[in-house]
Design a protein around this nucleic acid. Structure first.
Lengths: 383, 383
DNA sequence: AACCAAACGTTCAACTTCGAACACAGGGAG
DNA sequence: CTCCCTGTGTTCGAAGTTGAACGTTTGGTT
């Protein structure tokens, strides 16, 4: 095709381009610029308007607007279900550990917004992640994907690239990409700010006089990396030694957990450590139980803060814990996806951090302090 | 006849905008501002009133009210979630530079959600920030605050602490605190990811073969710090020299801008620089103009990318630009605040990054590339 | 209560834009 | 090669938009 005329589709793309640049376009101007008749331009505009990409006005078109007289004045009752009832695919690495609150938050939000969720469990394995995602795509049933693939190890970059080129929009959940991704659009994500959560714990203990702390991390959890970052940052800021880190699971069901805990306490004595931050409630409870057996008091001899707050309140004494709001992560993920599906490419990519809360109970400050803290808790700035 | 008159729909948007800004409008004033007859304004107002977007009154119109005699007593009106009609205070450092799109995004979102916005202009000065914020608090009229204080220089930490202890919830807009803040709750914020935006520009130029680039930053803009971060990061990742950075404003209204530009081009020649990224469209346009005068072609001799995309499309050639969606920042800020006000303390703090888009025009790749880009644009993952 | 100026609505006219009908060109399938 | 479909252009009556003129209503003032 030797002539420089554009294909219809290209021309419409240019119309949208002009529109985005100027906010409004005039049929007459477009006809001149594109070197086609005004009627053709009108037909283009009509086609684009039919897809809701712009709003027709007498003489041209503007960016889509609520004032569009073509859309019914009062959508009145249900702006919800009318929205073509989206189905969102969700692939999480585990269905019985860490993820249930996230999934349930997502489900609740989906129900409220009138969309469906197709859930797939994967393992913490990239090949399995891909298989599950491919199946969802192949079924042609989902308009968007919430993913939590394994991004550690070798194939991470390639996997990110693959995800970014899937034919439906994707949002990563509890995962973070490098800032810049080589994908057509920058990937979106929503995750808990675990680093900040851990920092909050360290500073809480620091405020109550502790100067030597230890950190016990669950082995093999993707959360550990973030916790480690927060630990380093907090210790650096506060001028604390950051070397006391143990990477061992010590929950009651781990064989040999008593020996590991015993070694940890050995280190505590040696370093004069007065506080421990423990990832995962079961591990914290296990340590608390061992301490009790040894006749050591919490928080008198050792203060403890647990990270996760699933069952921390069941410990004896009730355990101060950092609580990342997992259900909120699921909820925000669904809300973001619905917004993306409704608004399409007009919506710029977003990335959201959900900040964990510190729930102060009795394992970190003695109960008089607890009372005080509860009192001021109620007097917090707003309700 | 370059008809610069607005379309009817745009005019009506302006009417709604004025209305949101002032709470009420007069037919006479609108006719003068919009440069149409009063009759036309009346017709617009009548049309908007018919959709329930405003209430007609003798002489003009006001925001919709239940007292509107035109509306029947049937409560089948819009989704007036405003059972409690929140008022949100907003303090921005400037009312005529950078901030108007953010404010207007916030206003539109507020109107959609049925809340009011009280706007205060400050300067880029902490004392003035405090005064404006204090006034809003003292008036007892606002239930929440969107703030963009100056957090550079001495008193930043103290100011953050002060803000965190205000008696109403606050959200920072286009500002970021240190990760951890010593406030009762961690501060929330929403901001453009300018660093990522700049990184996108660098990588775009890198993809098209440029290996030596320069960065021109507006002097004294709070955005510059972020841009500098993105520049360092991108150059480090790509293995490019990162030393060519100029911190001078070179817009046409800066005295001596020609000398500065001339020195910049001198450096370009010396370093064999083939691409420039320029913060702020006016500065980029100014440089483009100078290049044209010198007989240098864009992008042939020097490729250019502008940062901000306010007027980049008006340059000759139309300028490739990074566009941070400012209106979206305002919109998300209001949505976050309303969510916070509705949900109270149950809602964990959130922090949101809005990612800028790269708008590829003709100053960075030659126009054959444009055709290609338009064609593949249609094949984008989703619509 | 009477009055007046401003605001409003109706009607008509000038002008612009829209779209239906028909004609024509070009590429792909049979 | 022909047929057919899609996309495009021209013409012309229909429909939409705006503003001037003028009579009517409204809100406030004397």
């Amino acid at each position: 095709m030797g002539d420089d005329r554009l294909f219809a589709l290209q021309r419409r793309e240019r119309v949208m381009d002009e529109l985005r640049r100027h906010g409004a376009v005039r049929v007459r101007d477009l006809a001149r610029i594109l070197e086609v008749s005004e009627l053709t331009v009108r037909r283009d505009i009509a086609a684009l308007a039919a897809r809701g990409l712009l709003t027709r006005v007498h003489g041209g078109a503007t960016l889509p607007t609520e004032l569009d007289p073509a859309t019914p004045a009062v959508p009145s009752r249900r702006p919800r279900t009318a929205a073509t009832a989206f189905t969102i695919g969700m692939v999480v690495p585990s269905l019985d550990f860490y993820w249930p609150p996230i999934v349930s938050g997502a489900r609740a939000s989906a129900a409220a917004l009138g969309v469906h969720i197709q859930l797939r469990g994967s393992s913490y394995d990239q090949a399995e992640d891909r298989r599950q995602i491919s199946r969802l795509i192949a079924a042609q049933q989902v308009q968007g994907l919430l993913l939590a693939p394994n991004l550690e190890g070798e194939g991470a970059d390639e996997l990110i690239d693959w995800i970014g080129n899937l034919p439906v929009p994707t949002i990563l959940v509890e995962r973070q990409t490098p800032d810049w991704t080589p994908t057509p659009r920058q990937l979106e994500w929503v995750r808990s700010d675990h680093a900040l959560g851990l920092e909050t714990a360290v500073r809480h203990l620091h405020e109550h006089g502790h100067r030597r702390m230890g950190l016990v991390l669950s082995k093999g959890s993707p959360t550990s990396a973030h916790l480690s970052v927060g630990w380093q940052r907090a210790c650096a800021d506060l001028g604390l030694p950051a070397e006391f880190v143990v990477r061992e699971s010590v929950a009651l069901d781990v064989p040999g957990h008593r020996e590991i805990i015993s070694r940890i306490l050995e280190r505590c004595r040696h370093h004069r450590t007065t506080a421990l931050i423990v990832h995962s409630d079961p591990d914290a409870i296990s340590i608390a139980q061992y301490l009790a057996e040894q006749g050591l008091s919490i928080p008198g001899d050792i203060a403890m803060v647990s990270y996760d707050d699933e069952v921390a309140q069941l410990a004896e004494p009730a355990m101060t814990a950092v609580r990342p709001s997992k259900s909120r992560v699921g909820r925000v993920a669904v809300e973001m996806m619905v917004a993306r599906l409704v608004e399409g490419k007009r919506r710029p990519p977003q990335r959201v951090l959900i900040l964990p809360e510190l729930v102060i109970r009795n394992s970190s400050v003695n109960s008089t302090g607890q009372l005080w803290s509860a009192a001021t808790g109620d007097a917090a700035p707003y309700t």
